[in-house]
């Protein structure tokens, strides 16, 4: 359907963004479901366990962490960002006066919202985990170190979590856009990723580990933000350029 209406890019993006937030409301419910599943696994002590013994003593330590909640959230955002590039989701944008740029910008807005919601709830989920363990299990055996989180630390956790989630969402969005170029890429891209992992394992080159370490080992907050922002912009730009090359509907 053709439209003769003149509309600014900003207004088009705003309209589409608002629509996506309302239309994809179920994704935020799935975020909740994913975090609750992670919480259930973690509260059951799935994070880890170790034992040690001396002459007449055996000590068993069960490890807990909110990291699994974050990992599940990262998977959630990567998958959902990937889904935004699928034809079914992409074609919804054509209900509005739109072009590739406004569509991509609205998607970016949605991903930022998802990252903020995911980062905030994942960090608060780790506090919920602590409360569950403290109030619902035998708290006498709970070691204090790392149990208490200072508000400042929690804030850092929220911000860092959001930035990581933004990176995961940009990666998912880029891969999704790449796969839309040609059907054969649905096989080739996963094969390439698997190949890199196998190469890493065979030659101990640790390409993936080095890539992860590039972000995770960064101790300077400024450099960390710059690294994430750079990578995210690169991935979004790549996805935008790729989607511009896709066939016109």
């Amino acid at each position: 359907m053709m439209s003769l209406a003149e509309i600014s890019l900003g207004k088009a993006v705003k309209q589409q963004y608002g629509f996506k937030i309302r239309a994809y409301g179920n994704l935020f419910v799935s975020l909740m479901a994913v975090q609750l599943i992670a919480l259930l696994f973690t509260a059951g002590g799935a994070t880890g366990m170790s034992g040690m013994g001396w002459d007449n003593i055996y000590i068993e330590i069960r490890y807990y962490s909110g990291t699994m909640i974050f990992v599940f959230t990262a998977l959630w955002i990567a998958v959902n960002s990937f889904m935004l590039t699928l034809p079914l989701f992409r074609n919804i944008d054509f209900s509005f006066v739109t072009n590739r740029i406004s569509s991509n910008l609205a998607n970016i807005g949605f991903m930022i919202t998802a990252a903020v919601a995911g980062g905030g709830t994942a960090a608060l989920g780790s506090i919920l985990l602590r409360n569950i363990l403290y109030y619902l299990t035998e708290s006498g055996s709970l070691i204090g170190a790392n149990f208490m989180v200072a508000p400042g630390e929690l804030f850092i956790g929220v911000v860092v979590g959001m930035l990581y989630l933004l990176l995961f969402s940009a990666a998912g969005y880029f891969v999704g856009a790449l796969l839309q170029l040609h059907r054969s890429l649905y096989v080739l891209v996963p094969a390439l990723l698997l190949g890199v992992l196998l190469y890493d394992a065979a030659y101990e080159s640790a390409l993936m580990l080095r890539l992860i370490g590039f972000f995770s080992l960064e101790l300077s907050p400024l450099l960390f933000v710059l690294k994430i922002a750079g990578a995210v912009l690169l991935l979004w730009t790549g996805a935008g350029l790729i989607s511009n090359r896709a066939e016109i509907r």
Partner: peptide
């Protein structure tokens, strides 16, 4: 007598200890 002790400990979230 042999003694068995069970403890629960939190490992810090990597997002919290990033820096």
């Amino acid at each position: 007598q042999r003694c068995e002790l069970n403890f629960k400990v939190f490992t810090p979230e990597f997002t919290v200890v990033q820096f």
